[in-house]
Simulated assay, not measured.
Amino acid sequence: MRSTIVRTAVGAAFVASLVTACDSAGTASSGPDLSSSGGTATSSGAPGQLDSDAAQQVGTTIEQALQRAPITFTPEKAELTEQARQTLGEIAKALQGNAVKISVSTHAGYPDDEKAKALSEKRAEAITTALEGLGVTGERVARDATGNEKAQGDQALDTQISVAK
């Protein structure tokens, strides 16, 4: 019940943030502004700086998206919620026009190591498949399906996404 209340509150906060993120024309204005460069991140520095700037912008967008609407799974399931799909949409948009790679860490809290690993892998696959459907190639997504090695209980329902190093 507690996790249902938390998810409901997070969902309401996400909707509220979308409403406030709209400018007067009714379009979303959150995330990095890539419009002036045709959808690619630009920098006046060296080529290495370009990659670093793009990675920093993507990392910031991922952090903000996950704070508004974390990607969580219900116990014993690997299906993405509509809220998770929206968050992945924001992340996919941030990955357009650059070569930044991301890392997805999934967990499952089963005491049985094999069951936990299998469910964790299904969750990572669900996220990768959703991102591929949004235009992010699979080779840009590193999967870290940890099973029950790094998270237990309610923490095992959460997914971490970050810029790959």
Rank of each mutant, 00 (worst) to 15 (best):
P47K: 07
Q152L: 06
A124D: 13
A126P: 06
G135N: 13
M1P: 02
E125K: 12
L119P: 10
G59R: 06
E114G: 05
S103Q: 08
E139A: 08
G147W: 09
D53T: 13
D144C: 03
R85P: 07
T87C: 04
A118Y: 11
A21C: 05
D51R: 01
C22N: 15
A78P: 03
S3K: 02
G39W: 06
S24L: 01
A54E: 07
A108G: 07
A108C: 10
A126R: 06
V104T: 03
T128H: 06
R7D: 09
Q96V: 09
T81M: 01
T81F: 01
R68Y: 15
E132L: 12
R143M: 14
Q57F: 06
A130V: 12
V19A: 15
A94M: 11
S17H: 01
S103E: 11
I91P: 13
A118H: 12
T4R: 07
T87H: 03
S105I: 03
S162A: 09
T74I: 02
Q96T: 13
Q64T: 15
E90A: 14
A25I: 00
T137A: 12
K77N: 12
V100W: 14
P111Q: 02
R85I: 05
G147T: 06
S36R: 15
Q67E: 04
V10I: 15
V6K: 13
T81R: 04
R2S: 07
A21H: 09
P70R: 00
I127T: 10
I161V: 05
R143W: 13
R85G: 04
T60H: 01
A28S: 14
S105N: 01
L119V: 11
A41S: 03
S43I: 08
T72F: 04
R123F: 09
I5G: 06
S162W: 01
S36K: 13
R85W: 02
G38K: 03
L88G: 08
G48F: 00
T40Y: 08
T137S: 15
Q64G: 12
G97C: 00
A126T: 11
G147Y: 10
S37N: 01
P111N: 04
N98K: 09
Q155Y: 12
V136L: 07
S36D: 13
I161Y: 01
K77T: 12
E149S: 12
G89H: 09
K101W: 06
V10C: 10
L18I: 12
D158W: 02
S120F: 07
E90P: 14
A156S: 08
V104M: 03
I127H: 07
A142W: 09
T61N: 15
T4V: 02
E149D: 08
G26A: 09
S37L: 02
A12L: 15
A13Q: 11
A28N: 07
A84T: 00
K150S: 15
E79V: 07
G45N: 03
T42R: 04
V15M: 05
S105T: 07
F14K: 12
T27D: 04
F14R: 11
V19Y: 11
I161C: 05
A54M: 02
L131G: 10
R85M: 03
R85F: 00
S35M: 05
S103H: 07
V19T: 13
L95M: 15
G147A: 11
V136P: 08
S37V: 00
A145R: 13
L66N: 03
Q57S: 01
A13N: 14
Q83R: 09
